[in-house]
Design a binder for these strands. Structure first.
Lengths: 227, 227
DNA sequence: CCTCCGCCTTGACGTACGTCAAAAGAACGG
DNA sequence: CCGTTCTTTTGACGTACGTCAAGGCGGAGG
C-alpha cells in the first residue's frame, strides 16, 4: 500500500475526488513516533493537524500536580489536533503516543486552501468535529452525573457495542490509562473491578474482560449503585 | 431592525455575500419561547439548528434521578444544536430557555445545501464547533482535575476577562444554575462563596461579585486549596 | 535462573462534597 | 399588605473516592 492509498483510506477524506487526494498526498508529512513520546503540548502553536496511520495516541489535560485526565484515545484512521486550525493558534490539550505510531501531518495553511475548494472535505471535517463534541458531552455527563462504577459499566457496554455486542472484551489500554480516561485513579479502578467480579457481573483476566450479567451492567450504567 | 439585518449580524454568518444572507432569511423560522420552556430534549430528532436572537438558553444533560449538569449557556448571537446536523439525527443533550427568548431556527436540509455552496459558511461553522470543543475540554479539565473552589475561581476569572478585566462582576444566572454549570449543588456553592468572602478574596452581594484579591483567586484557580 | 522495574492490587485513613432537613430571604401575584 | 413559592443559606451527617504506603506479579534482560 503506497502513500496515496493510505490517504484515500482515511475516513475524513472519504468521497473526495482523486485530484484532491493527490493534493493531500503532496502536502502530507509522514512521521514516526516511539512509544510514550510527546507529539504536542497544551499551549503549543498549532501549525497543522494529524491523522493516525498506525498506533495509538492519547489526548489529555494535566494538572500542575501531575494528575491527568484523558479526553480521547485515537487509533488508526482518526484525526486529532484540528481544533486550533479553526478556533485559534494553539493546542488546548496535550498529545502523547501510547505505542509506536505512524502519523500523517497536514500543514494548516495548505489544508485550509483545500477545504475552501472542496465542500465535501468541509462536510467531512464538520462531521468529525461533531462526533468529537458528542463524545466529550457524554464524558462530561459521565464525570458529573455518575460515580465511577457507572462510568466503568458504560465504558464496557460501549466497548461491547463497538464489537457488535460481543461478551468478551479486550482492553486495548492499560488499566492505569483506563482509570485516567474514566476520571479516576488506578487504585479505585482496581477495587471496583474486584467488586464487580465478586458479584458475578464480569470476569477479569488480565486485559480480557467478560460480561457475565449484561442486565446488571446496564442498570449500573444508568446510574445504579454497586452494593 | 428587520429580519435580514438581524441575520446579517449573527457572527456565524459574518463575511457572507448578500445573496447568501437573503437565502438564509428565506429559510429561517422566527420563534419565541417563554422562560423555562424546553426547546428540545436528548434523543429528539434534529430537523435543524438554532441561533439565539435574544434571551438565554442552557444546554444540559440530566441523570435519571433529576440531577443536571449544564454544558453551555448561550446568549444572543450564539448558535446551538448544530451537532446532529453533521454527526447524526438526534440531539445529544437537552435545551431549555432560561428566560423569554427569541430564536432563529434553520432547517437542516436547506442549510446544508447552503454550506456546500459557500466555503465561507463552512469555515465559520468549523470555527464555531472548534470553539465549542475547546470549551468542553476545559470543562472536563475543571471537573476532573480541580475541586469546586478552583472551578469557581476559574469561572470568576473567566467572567472578569470577558469584561476586560473588571473587578465587579454581575452573575447573569442564578446561583443554582451556576452550581450546575460547575458540576456541583447549590449548598456546596453557597458554602464556598461564604468561605471566599470571609477570607477577603471576594465580596458577594446578591448577584454582584467583587474581586478583592485577584492574586489569591488566580492561585486558587490553578488548583490551589482554600484553607 | 535470578533481579530489576513497571503495573496492579490491597489496606488503613482522611476529607471534600453530596444528602437530608429546616429555616430565612426574595420574588410575585392577588 | 400578606400568602405562596422559589432561591439561598446553614447545620448535622454519611460516604465515595483520593492519598499514602506496602506488598504481589509478570515481563525483560543479564
Amino acid at each position: 500500500m503506497n502513500l496515496t492509498e493510505h490517504i484515500a483510506a482515511i475516513p475524513l477524506f472519504e468521497g473526495l475526488p482523486n485530484d484532491q487526494i493527490e493534493e493531500l498526498t503532496d502536502i502530507v508529512v509522514d512521521q514516526t513516533f516511539k512509544r510514550g513520546q510527546s507529539i504536542f503540548s497544551e499551549g503549543d502553536e498549532a501549525t497543522g493537524f494529524y491523522v493516525v496511520a498506525s498506533g495509538k495516541v492519547k489526548i489529555y489535560k494535566s494538572s500542575p500536580d501531575g494528575k491527568e485526565q484523558i479526553l480521547h484515545i485515537f487509533g488508526p484512521g482518526e484525526a486529532f489536533g484540528e481544533v486550533p486550525m479553526f478556533a485559534g493558534a494553539h493546542f488546548p490539550a496535550n498529545a502523547d503516543t501510547l505505542e509506536q505510531s505512524r502519523l500523517f501531518f497536514f500543514p494548516r495553511a495548505r489544508f485550509i486552501d483545500l477545504i475552501k475548494q472542496e465542500p465535501m472535505l468541509a462536510m467531512n471535517m464538520l462531521g468529525a468535529l461533531s462526533r468529537r463534541l458528542r463524545m466529550l458531552a457524554t464524558l462530561v455527563d459521565n464525570l458529573s452525573l455518575k460515580e465511577v462504577p457507572g462510568r466503568l459499566a458504560a465504558y464496557f457496554l460501549h466497548l461491547s457495542e463497538a464489537d457488535s455486542g460481543a461478551d468478551e472484551l479486550e482492553l486495548e489500554i492499560s488499566k492505569g490509562q483506563l482509570a485516567s480516561l474514566l476520571g479516576t485513579i488506578p487504585e479505585t479502578l482496581s477495587r471496583i473491578l474486584a467488586k464487580m467480579s465478586s458479584q458475578g457481573i464480569i470476569a477479569v483476566d488480565g486485559k480480557k474482560v467478560t460480561i457475565l450479567d449484561r442486565e446488571l451492567l446496564e442498570e449500573l450504567a444508568d446510574s445504579g449503585k454497586l452494593s
